[in-house]
Design a protein around this nucleic acid. Structure first.
Lengths: 250, 250
DNA sequence: TGCATACGTTATGTATACAATAGCGGGGAG
DNA sequence: CTCCCCGCTATTGTATACATAACGTATGCA
């Protein structure tokens, strides 16, 4: 271990996990490909023990699959898997929105969400939206959804939604992007923004059923757009997550 | 490792995971208590590496919580956490039922579910139900729910439901039991059985919305019964899972 | 020529040794 | 008497050595 550079600021396990996840999502490791521990040790700089812990975590996270005879391989997802995951996440977010509405949320708690909303409005104002602005949108959208989830005040639900979001394709906005050119995508984002606005309103007025319904519709919109996107296959380069789709069988 | 008895039929990691889960659910390890690796090594018979892997898996499973300064502790759950988890699971099962209904299921696939149903009917016929019969019921009920989940044909959803069920309190029937004496519990089981029957019927007739609704109602019933059960505190000895409730704050 | 078996290589599963850190207890000083 | 600091101990994080099983290849026999 003479030349091994050890970064003590973060644990080796976390470092390995991040590095491996990166490799998977960037496509360096292809779906179905077996992950060699030895190779992972070389590329991550950690030793076998933390690498193995990282592999276990990534398996639980859903990115890897255990091979019966031993070791792990990168999981492959069908288009159906991905659209189901989006709907799944939407269903859970719907529950979160309902919990938030039923349990009551103070105006102060809604503040950050409204700020988020305003920031997104600002981004969507420019037509056509720029790539940079779109990238900001993705971040803000993720923030909005995370904040919304928090409003449920339900740790088990929040945890589960995190898990469902772990697979990167759970970010609906990225798929919207895939659909077509930016100007067309923007129209869809504007509809999505409308959903965001409605869910806030429903929560404010403590209308649980409406809050839930709109989040589910929100996900259904994302699924429809994913379908279209995969037909068109434009801007797919913006979607590292789609590198995980390799299976033809559905 | 002279005296170490190694059972080569299952991996040490799995063995350790099962043993630790058992200790947690049986209450040998109390919520909030730190799990010592060394101690776990002694009680499980595996060495530190597989024990650590097991701990990571149990953390991902939700039974353990990582301590910032290192190590793991047994997670504690509030009553709210548990009822939310039941509702969460019911929501996911509702989605599964809807998928099954919408995507279509052959009569042959429904066969095992109907057998399960019949077996449960048989058990419920004797009044009052015996403890043994109740125990069989728990098994059969779990089987029914697992089969139903499978019908969705959606690997991501199935996976997520498994995760949501990992926490043992997700088994609604066990909570029903907690409510009161067996004869009273039996009445509730009969209602639950009616739900089972309706969901099968809805799936057969491809009524997605109805299938989903009944599963959610099924979960809501379980939540109501949990609330009652915790007021009455009878038969709690049948509920090892409740050993996980320790927090007074909700 | 093709298949089966045996051997070797390689990778994973397991165990343990080593390193570092956090928590605790004791002792000293204010 | 109390509080703070230093050092020790116990426990986790990391690295590596060892065991074992699987896969591939080569060789021999049918």
């Amino acid at each position: 271990m003479a030349e091994r550079e050890v970064d003590r600021s973060v644990s080796q396990t976390v470092k390995a996990q991040l590095a491996l996840r990166d490799q998977i999502l960037s496509g360096s490791l292809r779906p179905g490909e077996r992950i060699s521990e030895l190779q992972a040790v070389e590329t991550t700089g950690a030793s076998r023990t933390p690498v193995r812990m990282a592999l276990v975590r990534l398996e639980e996270e859903g990115l890897l699959e255990a091979i019966p005879s031993g070791g792990f391989m990168v999981k492959a997802f069908s288009e159906r898997d991905i659209s189901d995951s989006i709907e799944l996440r939407g269903t859970l977010e719907g529950l979160a929105a309902r919990f938030a509405a039923e349990r009551g949320v103070s105006a102060r708690e809604l503040e950050p969400l409204k700020e988020c909303l305003a920031a997104i409005d600002e981004l969507l104002r420019q037509v056509p939206i720029s790539i940079d602005a779109f990238s900001s949108y993705v971040t803000l959208n993720a923030r909005f959804h995370a904040l919304l989830t928090e409003l449920s005040r339900s740790p088990p639900l929040i945890r589960q939604i995190d898990r469902a979001s772990a697979l990167p394709f759970a970010s609906p906005s990225a798929f919207v992007m895939a659909q077509s050119a930016l100007t067309e995508a923007q129209q869809i984002l504007i509809i999505a923004q409308e959903h965001h606005r409605v869910v806030i309103d429903a929560i404010e007025n403590r209308e649980g059923a409406r809050a839930e319904a709109v989040m589910r519709e929100h996900a259904r919109l994302a699924v429809r757009n994913l379908r279209l996107a995969l037909r068109n296959r434009t801007h797919l380069d913006l979607l590292p997550a789609l590198a995980l789709i390799r299976t033809a069988t559905d």
